[in-house]
Write a protein that binds this DNA or RNA. Structure first.
Length: 508
RNA sequence: GGCCGAUUCGUCUAUCGGUUAGGACGCCAGAUUUUCAUUCUGGAAAGAGGGGUUCGAUUCCCCUAUCGGCUACCA
């Protein structure tokens, strides 16, 4: 059977999209594009209690920012022929298959309340609702038809459970891990449907939808591996085994330190975002920071994430989305979890920042300047960016690295002052002012020639003069080539800054 | 506890039985530099342990250990 490749990303709208989810979406997308297939976005909102308003919009916006395009479903240009793509809007569809399973005797109705089940679990260690226990519970297998009917008519809440046949070897053929075999006896009679909200659970919904939506490959996180056999069984029970998608369970993204799945708390604790975009919790109004707002380029994010769990087998590190699409393959996805290395993420952003043209970077940097009420013509900003970009990881770093191109230092670094500002410095600086005063061609090269010549003639220490000069201009012992700075800020400003340093530092 | 999965430098990883176990991030040192940074060069740094299979195992198998995931009327 040769079907068109169709994959889906199916998050639940319970909050902002987690970075691990982003990677899952990315891998699905790369796989779809490489095979000329379709990428669907489906919203798995079968838990009405956990629905968070705004989460769906967030997911769509995040994927858009990253350049992960949706061909069908939520957020797609064309709605698609399998609409709706929100599971809460597909109630009738699921109901039909629930009934089919019920009629075939492959599922049954159970009336045990959550409280009763809790009690059972408290009493019996390792209690599992399955072939060994279902006969002692309140369900359509133990109750008479009349009793079941009576309860149903009375409007009593119930769930539908799958009736797992015990002692069956179930094989899941995973594209990343190979064959995973488990015995059906360790599976419990999972709830497929709950009458309270007339919604199925994930297990039933994802199988039904993947079948109906003609999904060919299910690429999802490793946390789903244990329930994959259940899904296989469901395909079998529904008579769709020959249309069953292929599975690929991705390794998890782990905390950078210690162990465990990467969580929101880790980001807060270690000071980096775990979400693509800023997110404000609608209830608590607490804001969680996102990569976009932290200054990351989406291309860098994609590159970084792509390599967390996959590599092409050579030593290339930088990939465009198109290259990733060409190179990606599921059999080069690693099996073990990857610790999230924020430092490496920064390095990727640094690389992408270096690849940007000075013009593009200047345009972005202008926003930072405007926020600080600094209005500069783009010609100057481009020149500044060219001088300082290689020292920056983020666009915001550009300010830190080059604020002195736009405003005089407001303070002078103490350490540098005590090290570089000596007794005879003010006199030298005054001489320097006079020297600069006489220069007409204020280009860096010409200034440098004249100033150095002057220093040598006078027999001053090169380091002594230049470092004090820098301190006056920048306020600290940092920054690019000194005469590049003076050329850009100009003669007048240069002299003003030296004068100011002489007067301010004299008072100390 | 049970089930499933995983295990190469601190981190991400390459190696598909024979390698001085390679690269990248980070770290350290040196060079360059009037400062800081960049850049360049160099360096330290790894096959969890134990059994097999084999002429030969990081690589294949088993056991143990460790880590992770799952074990809900959550996804």
């Amino acid at each position: 059977m040769n079907r068109k490749v169709r994959v889906r990303f199916a998050p639940s709208p319970t909050g902002p999209l987690h970075i691990g989810g982003v990677r899952t979406a990315l891998y699905n997308y790369l796989f779809a594009r490489q095979h000329g297939g379709d990428m669907l976005l489906r919203i798995e909102d079968t838990d009405s209690a956990r629905f968070v308003p705004g989460a769906e919009e967030y997911i769509v916006e995040a994927l858009q920012w990253l350049g992960i395009e949706i061909d069908e479903g939520i957020g797609a240009k064309n709605t698609g022929k399998h609409a709706p793509y929100r599971q809460s809007e597909r109630k009738d569809i699921y109901k039909k298959y629930v009934n089919q399973l019920l009629e075939a005797g492959l599922a049954y109705i159970a009336f045990d309340t959550p409280a009763e089940l809790d009690m059972k679990r408290g009493k019996t260690a390792n209690f599992q609702y399955d072939a060994t226990t279902r006969n002692g519970m309140l369900n359509s297998l133990t109750l008479s038809d009349a009793e079941v009917k009576k309860r149903l008519e009375a409007g009593e809440n119930y769930v539908v459970r799958i009736k797992i046949e015990p002692n069956l070897e179930i094989c899941v053929n995973d594209l990343i891990r190979g064959e995973v075999v488990i015995n059906s006896s360790v599976l419990d009679d999972k709830v497929l449907y709950k009458s309270v909200d007339e919604l199925p659970t994930y297990h039933l919904a994802n199988v039904v939808d993947d079948y109906l939506m003609e999904v060919t490959h299910v690429i999802r996180g490793e946390e789903w591996l244990p329930s994959a056999p259940l899904h296989v069984l469901l395909y079998r029970y529904l008579g769709w085994e020959s249309f069953m998608p292929q599975f690929a369970h991705l390794p998890l993204l782990l905390k950078p330190d210690g162990n465990g799945k990467l969580s929101k708390r880790d980001g807060d604790r270690l000071g980096f975002p775990v979400f693509p975009l800023d997110w404000e919790d609608p209830n608590t109004e607490v804001i969680s920071s996102g990569y976009r707002e932290a200054g990351y380029f989406p291309e860098a994010m994609v590159n970084f994430l792509a390599l967390l769990g996959w590599n092409p087998g050579n030593e290339q590190e930088i990939f465009s989305m198109q290259e990733l699409i060409n190179l990606f393959s599921l059999d080069r996805v690693s099996k073990s979890g990857a610790k999230f290395d924020y430092e490496k993420g920064k390095w990727f952003n640094h690389k992408y920042l270096q690849m940007k043209s000075n013009e593009d970077l200047a345009d972005i940097f202008q926003h930072v300047l405007v926020d600080k009420d600094i209005i500069e013509d783009s010609e100057k900003v481009i020149k500044v960016v060219a001088l300082i970009k290689e020292r920056a990881d983020f666009v915001t770093d550009l300010w830190e690295q080059g604020f002195f191109f736009f405003q005089a230092p407001t303070s002078f670094d103490e350490k540098t002052v005590s090290k570089r500002w000596k007794e005879n410095t003010p006199a030298q600086m005054n001489e320097l002012i006079e020297k600069l005063q006489q220069i007409d061609d204020f280009s860096a090269a010409n200034q440098e020639k004249i100033v150095i010549q002057w220093i040598e003639e006078k027999g001053y220490g090169m380091g002594a003069v230049m470092n004090a000069f820098r301190l006056a201009l920048v306020g600290a012992a940092k920054g690019p080539h000194l005469f590049d700075i003076t050329e850009i800020i100009g003669k007048q400003e240069t002299i003003a800054r030296i004068k100011r340093a002489v007067s301010v530092l004299a008072q100390e």
